[in-house]
Design a protein around this nucleic acid. Structure first.
Lengths: 224, 224
DNA sequence: GCAAAAGTGTTGTGTCTACACCCATGT
DNA sequence: ACATGGGTGTAGACACAACACTTTTGC
């Protein structure tokens, strides 16, 4: 079967979409959405189908495989293999979800069915790691945003404060962001209007390729 | 089913263990070792069992899950899910393998059955990435080695030259290596004897935790 | 003018590459 | 002595964090 860890920053907090089980085992407790495969279906197709059917989530900005769980003890009833996926939803969307489905902060989860808590935490770890060395921020952010707004998204996902100053410089140096030329007018409290940025790419790219032990040769020239 | 990408540096070249198929489809062509699960078996148990049974490889220094393949077209006969694992064998071992099994350089693979070529390359990518930001080198190296020997292993795995000078400094600064106090006597051509080192840990550890966007606060003190 | 929010200048630090130089051994 | 291979010293490039300062707005 396939399972989806769908994450979104909502109200400034990283949240995961959970589904309340209607049947034993773990009747009534929260679990990850997902379900069985149908014949000749890809795992990715399967999780997309289950997310669209059961929880009406279609606007995934990113989807990647996490891991496959196979411990014979993970389900009390039967031996069950499950492949978990990480899905991300941009921050301004509010997909309509059925009544048995809701968002929960990843800090402060209720008791989850099966081994789902560990899977949620693994998904968050994957997100945190990739925010550091890829452009994955595109999947959390709306189409256009100010640096402050983006800083809040990164802070919620990473779980610690992020400096807007340095975030801007890192992402611009890596050419992950580009300015739109437009400005966001300030709120009623005043303040300088913020410049609006967007991600240059909406697909995953590694932006910090070689941590160390990179190939010999002259320093790579920054893209002109 | 489970599949294993077993890699080892042999004769200074990164090689993968392949198994020659005896049955259709792809009769006679090379493929990754592996096979079906038996009930109540973990995927990891399964791949270890198949590697031990069929190819007599028991001395894996590292084993981790790569990904699960599910394309309905990947096997011409039937719809087949396969979970691929990356296994590593230290460089000085020469496990006894049956006659239908052999090592092949990853640069210069024969035509492989199914989608196995892509899986091998994915395994190599995983290895290359983790050599940069973890202590995974322990899984390629013998118990003790000189920096030159280790340099050759890294160069074979990474596919480019590596400077022994800098490799030593990086791995010592990160406290991944430690000296043994012993020396390797020089060969017949003479030369200064090389100091012998070993990896401090034989289990995977991240040694370059935050590429960027690390939490605020005073600089982490290097371990005294 | 003053508060609020955004953005820039600048300094310091740590980590890495590159390369010159020195050290220990065999013949 | 000299060739061979191992190891250290050091300088420069770079990316980043931190923080002070400036800019632009509302009131």
């Amino acid at each position: 079967m396939s399972l989806g860890v769908v994450l979104q920053v909502r109200d400034g907090v990283l949240q995961v979409l959970l589904w309340q089980r209607a049947r034993a085992p773990f009747e009534g407790s929260w679990s990850l959405p997902g379900g069985y495969l149908v014949p000749d279906e890809t795992l990715e197709t399967s999780i997309r189908r289950h997310l669209a059917d059961k929880v009406d989530v279609r606007e995934l900005s990113h989807l990647e495989q996490l891991e496959t769980l196979s411990d014979p003890q993970r389900s009390p009833q039967e031996w069950q293999l499950a492949t978990a996926y990480l899905g991300l939803v941009p921050s301004e969307l509010d997909p309509r979800v059925p009544s048995d489905t809701d968002w929960h902060p990843v800090d402060g989860l209720p008791a989850l069915a099966f081994d789902h808590e560990a899977i949620v935490l693994a998904g968050r770890e994957r997100l945190r790691a990739k925010l550091s060395y890829t452009n994955l921020g595109f999947a959390l952010a709306p189409a256009e945003f100010t640096i402050s707004e983006l800083r809040d998204l990164y802070a919620a996902a990473l779980g610690h404060d992020v400096s807007a100053t340095n975030l801007q410089r890192v992402l611009l140096r890596r050419r992950v962001l580009e300015g739109t030329g437009r400005l966001r007018p300030p709120g009623p409290a005043g303040g300088r209007p913020g410049a609006l940025f967007r991600f240059r790419k909406q697909t995953l790219e590694i932006t910090d390729q070689f941590a160390v032990l990179r190939p010999p040769g002259p320093a790579r020239v920054p893209v002109a």
